[in-house]
Every structure is written in C-alpha cells, then in structure tokens.
Design a binder for these strands. Structure first.
Lengths: 145, 145
DNA sequence: GAATGTATGTTAGAGCTCTAATGCATGCAA
DNA sequence: TTGCATGCATTAGAGCTCTAACATACATTC
C-alpha cells in the first residue's frame, strides 16, 4: 500500500487555499468585468508600459501562448493596445488604454481588499512564517522536477 | 495609493506554491499518461467504486460540469466505465476498469513520491502549523465572498 | 395525487492553461 | 557573408475550469 490519506497530503491543503483565493479574487474582479489573469496582466502593464508579451508572461508566471490568449481577449475589449516596436519589428509593445486603466483600478480595489482581509487573519509573525513555508514548498517542488 | 506590492501579497506566494505543486504532480503523472485532475478522480474512484459524478466532483473540489469533462476523457480512453444505477435511473455509477486501476496505481506512486518529498521539507511541527495556516486562508477567503 | 424541493446529469459558452511546432527578427561569431 | 543562437510572436491541439441554464428523477409534503 503506497497510498496516502488525502488529509495528510500537504498538496490538498495548498490546492484548497489556492481555490478559495481564486474564487475570492474572481468575485472581487467581477465589478470590473475582468478575470483574475486579466487583472494580473493589467496590473503589471500599468507598472511597465510597453512591455513585451513574453516578459509580461514571465512576470505573471504563465507561458507566452497563455499570455497571448489573455491579451487577445483584452485587446478585443479595447482595454489594451499593441503597437510594433520601433526597432525590433518582431516585438509588440503593449499598453493600457484609458478604459484599461480604469478597469485595472476598479479591479485593484477589490483585489487589495481581499489581500488585506487575508493579511488581517495573521499576525505579522505568522505572515512571515507562512510566506517562508510557502516559499520552501515552491523551492522543493521545483527541485523535484 | 490603494496599490500593494506583489511581494507583500500573500496570494502571490500561494499561487506560486500551487503552480509548483501542479507542475511537479503533472510530471509525476506523466508516466501513466494522465493529467492531475484525472489522477485525482481515479484515486477517489478506487476508494469509492460506483460513486456518482456529482459526489466525485465534491470530493475533488470541482464543479459537476468540470468533472463531467474529466470523466468523458477518461471514458474515451477506457479507464473508467459508467453504468446506470439500478434504482435511481438518473444516476450513473462510475467504476475503474482494469486499465484504469493500473493507470491510477502508476500515477499514484509518482504522486506519493512528490508528497513525501514535500513532507520531508518540514518538521512535524512545521507541517501541522503550515496546514493550519492554509486552512485559515481558505476559511477567511471563503467568508470574504 | 399534486406541488415543492433536492440531487443528478448534461449542454452551451467563455476563458485559461499547457506542450509542441513554426516563423520571423536581431545580434554575434566564424 | 553565412551561419548560429537567442528571443518574440503565433498557431494548433488537448484539456481543465467556471457560470448559466435546462432536463430528469426521486423524495417529501400538502
């Protein structure tokens, strides 16, 4: 019996927390009519205007084709615009439109509210420990591959 | 300034850990040629033969349509079989095939290896604390909705 | 018996995610 | 100059995920 009870699997609890996080953020982004990945992209775009899609993908922790999908949807809705780079013709510079900035700010207030509620559930000490434990997780799991 | 640095957002770290977890489990399930959600379904099916799709969805923490998608793929590959329930005609009983059990066991050895590696990165005390912190997360976030 | 309620199953549609493969552009080196 | 390496963008294909809506079947209550 190589098996292991689900409750003993740390992964189950991580997954559960992540799911709750996604659901809460999704609800928070709903007034702005954007999804969580869209909000993440908009947030980084506000900070780094003209960034390439590949670099944006790295910041958001997804692959370039995934970011391509997200950006395509954002562009169709007029929240971003993409223009060819002056020198590197193959690169597209992506920027927020006015509408895009407004959507980002609206979604951000909701997202920050969620993050603050989350942070309020821990003492400063707990929070730091928690982040350290999560970091160790990612480290070990990445090494496992 | 309603904004918040990404590093301060606990959510970022949860997402990162979850991503690493998913990547590691995906790699672990690859020899069995199943995805992580498929493995999760197969694992529960082994423990609860004849379970309904809706109940299985609850165990796996997904919605019924999602489980439907997963089961459809598993059925097409002959890893499960679904038969109408004796009394409740609307219910389909789902069971592993021989092939399905073999795939589950192969994937399970990989998944358990990942979980053991993860568990080994923490002391018993840390592990319990970590799970408690993750649980508090899910609790707070679910309440936030 | 009829109405309500609960649970299951399914379809439709939108969106995210990955791997794999391809094409293009730039820059560096032989 | 030619070739190679790097990086960006995109397409194709498979699969997961959700919400919304609808259909069905059983159970309870009136």
């Amino acid at each position: 019996m190589t098996s292991m009870a689900p409750e003993e699997r740390i992964g189950s609890h991580i997954k559960r927390a992540e799911q709750a996080l996604l659901a809460a953020k999704n609800a928070a982004c709903k007034p702005a009519a954007v999804t969580v990945p869209q909000y993440a992209a908009l947030l980084w775009l506000a900070e780094k205007p003209g960034i390439s899609a590949a670099a944006l993908a790295r910041l958001c922790g997804v692959t370039p084709p995934t970011m391509n999908t997200v950006l395509k949807n954002l562009q169709e809705r007029g929240l971003i615009e993409r223009t060819p780079h002056e020198w590197h013709r193959n690169v597209l510079e992506t920027r927020l439109t006015e509408e895009g900035r407004a959507a980002m700010e609206l979604a951000d207030t909701g997202a920050v509210r969620v993050e603050r509620a989350l942070a309020a559930a821990f003492t400063e000490e707990e929070r730091e420990l928690f982040i350290a434990l999560l970091g160790r997780c990612a480290e070990v799991l990445d090494a496992e591959r």
